[in-house]
């Protein structure tokens, strides 16, 4: 029974990584850049929820919903603004490193602004999910509400994203931009607008991930997004960067491995094991689990 509990906890943590990784992978796939500030969008989202629910006296369902919605909206705007100010001017720069370094700069900027506003002390985040969860087999197997909600939310997000990309005109335009910006322009697609939309969606997902992450692990600090951000990046690479189902699978694998190795092997070594798996996968299959091998026929 306890194994099952750990597995479900791993699935839940993995779902959070997956939601973050979806944002990473979409931005990479479409804008062809690694947004290393992505993890810090999570942190911003958490502080927004923390402040809003603090201001309106939290606890009430309406307050929680309002704070999460506000967090999603503001994070989207933050993503769009960051892209417009910091990344767009560097698109087409001689070296792809320029935008990468800028992203790291944005990451430090966000962390330090949060440090200035909220201070370095760890804040206690009150969970946005008040449901206690379910209990099975006479209480031997207990699953927390936040765990269930996290898994369900990530599944819903995955399905919605797949539908959006495969069934809508905007989604198809994203795929076209991902493949060839020039050819997409020739079709009449506004590449800048498409990339902006991608950032908006990716950042909104970061806000959702933040709400779930801080509900499960309620310690809020300016660096709360840094490690999950890196783990999610690993998850995206593991699954095959640019691939949406890949990000989901990578995230779940990572979360389960992390929790199980923490439980059964060593809690100190768990990160080493997680990153070790990445190294092995990349040696065996450099494109990641679902990565595309680019096939060209002339």
């Amino acid at each position: 029974m306890s194994f099952l509990t750990y597995l479900i906890n791993g699935l839940s943590l993995g779902s959070i990584y997956a939601i973050i990784a979806l944002g990473y992978t979409m931005v990479y796939g479409i804008a062809k850049m690694l947004n290393f500030a992505h993890g810090d969008f999570i942190m911003v989202g958490c502080y927004i929820i923390f402040s809003v629910s603090g201001a309106i006296g939290g606890g009430s369902t309406m307050g929680v919903i309002l704070s999460v919605i506000l967090s999603v909206v503001l994070c989207s705007l933050l993503g769009i603004t960051t892209e417009f100010i910091a990344y767009r001017p560097l698109r087409g720069a001689a070296s792809p490193l320029a935008v990468l370094i800028t992203a790291i700069g944005v990451s430090y900027l966000l962390e330090n602004v949060a440090l200035l506003i909220f201070g370095a002390d760890v804040k206690s985040f009150s969970s946005v999910i008040t449901w206690q969860g379910l209990s099975f087999a006479d209480g031997q197997l207990r699953i927390q509400g936040v765990t269930i909600v996290t898994i369900v939310v990530s599944l819903v997000i995955l399905i919605c994203l797949q539908l959006f990309i495969n069934k809508t005109k905007q989604g198809q335009a994203m795929l076209a931009v991902a493949e060839d910006k020039g050819a997409a322009t020739l079709m009449g697609i506004n590449v800048n607008k498409t990339i902006m939309l991608t950032f908006a969606i990716g950042s909104a997902l970061a806000a959702v991930a933040g709400a779930l992450l801080c509900s499960a692990y309620p310690n809020l600090s300016p660096y709360v997004g840094a490690m999950p951000g890196i783990k999610a990046f690993v998850a995206a690479v593991l699954g095959g960067i640019g691939s949406i189902p890949g990000a989901m699978i990578g995230g779940l694998v990572l979360g389960i491995v992390e929790i199980l190795s923490k439980t059964y092997i060593s809690s100190q070594l768990s990160d080493a094991i997680v990153f070790g798996i990445l190294v092995i996968v990349l040696i065996v299959k450099p494109t990641g689990i679902l990565g595309k091998v680019i096939q060209e026929k002339v």
Partner: peptide, 13 residues
């Protein structure tokens, strides 16, 4: 409209 050099079809569509 343009038919670009090297065709540039969307290979994954």
């Amino acid at each position: 409209a343009q038919v670009p050099e090297g065709r540039r079809v969307f290979a994954e569509m």
